[in-house]
Design a protein around this nucleic acid. Sequence first.
DNA 1: TATAAAAGTTAGATAAGCAAAACAAATTAA
DNA 2: TTAATTTGTTTTGCTTATCTAACTTTTATA
Lengths: 218, 218
Amino acid sequence: MLSFTEENYLKALLKINLNTSQTEAGTNELASMLEVKPATVTDMLKKLKEKKLVNYERYGKISLTREGKKKAVEVLRKHRLWETFLYEKLSFTWDEVHEVAEQLEHIQSSKLIDKIDELLGFPEFDPHGDAIPDAKGEIKLRAQKTLDEIELGKTCKMVAVKDNSTPFLQYVVKVGLGISSKIKVISRQPYDAMLIIEVKGKKHTVSQKFAQNIFVVY
Amino acid sequence: MLSFTEENYLKALLKINLNTSQTEAGTNELASMLEVKPATVTDMLKKLKEKKLVNYERYGKISLTREGKKKAVEVLRKHRLWETFLYEKLSFTWDEVHEVAEQLEHIQSSKLIDKIDELLGFPEFDPHGDAIPDAKGEIKLRAQKTLDEIELGKTCKMVAVKDNSTPFLQYVVKVGLGISSKIKVISRQPYDAMLIIEVKGKKHTVSQKFAQNIFVVY
DNA sequence: TATAAAAGTTAGATAAGCAAAACAAATTAA
DNA sequence: TTAATTTGTTTTGCTTATCTAACTTTTATA
């Protein structure tokens, strides 16, 4: 049985994996993601290595073992299903679900999460547009472009967000965006890559950082 | 913010309160309920006293302060609502709900539990027949007789169980009993207070210990 | 009421999780 | 290729929750 903390370390490694397509991570990277000091990470890595959940050597790069990845995917599945449950069944807003799901993802009961999955009709995506791993651990991967990579003049559809923090999500709502929103890219400032976009007939100016956190498809 | 462990100590004190109508508890009593050693309880009591959640003096009796009781009732409310949710919405059996609710009761989000309450239609009793405290912390108390106190020849209705353990509940089901079952008390063995009862036309012999864990009304 | 039993406490350990400070290795830049 | 910077590790120590073993207080009883 893994502790909450151990589960969070595995989840962080998986996140680095999925978000950046790099299979290896560094101590500092993990530390800042988990909001602890690098020394703490080193300690935990030794423990996780003992348990054969991560590949790790002193001063080396860190990656998940097959078993570690399996555990991490289970946690991710629980997180995203709980988010969907909160959103769909308890009318939480999409910026509220993350915090509570961070707690719920650690509840130990496979029956529970499978029943929640069933109750929701086996959803494929959570309220942020992220793919929910199925009971076998399979994750649907989408060819994901971010909004800042879209050509001028083209219209695209928002499918997900990269950043799940409350401030970002509230900002997204303020600009009139949500999953499935149509976005037209009007212009791009050469100096700082600020974008002018059109959403529901209204123009908005957004930063490159903002655009890099919006996943879209044509 | 209280730790899981602190919440469990408060809940145990409340349970002693509700089950036995005594407002004070002893160290050993708490220790056996929480499955830790008495020394551990002494340590924790000092901490809880510091936080003004329990009344406690060296070698003295233990009771909840007003604040401590409030916290304990909140935990109990969450526990019983989650049990009801698992039973009603996810088709868990009544002997399965307790274990998972032990975990879910510690999730920190008042919005979450109030929404669950709403989803369930503000239930008054959980699957074991125990009263669910409302959002203000009010608990419906019932005049509770146990099955072993019923007069010979009388028929009564089961309203709740005292013991929520899986083995006990599975035994209850085996005897054909559940919440609202009609029970006729046929005879009582003078020597060991074994009861012969009739449930749905079938006779069963049950121990006094069993009968003391079944709450009934006429 | 003296004493044995029961109940409760203290002291000293351990394990998990975290971090400050000092140190070591690896990488980058000069 | 040496020096500076970045990255990662070790050591030591704190906190929380637990334990064992020895001790003390309370209570029940003979």
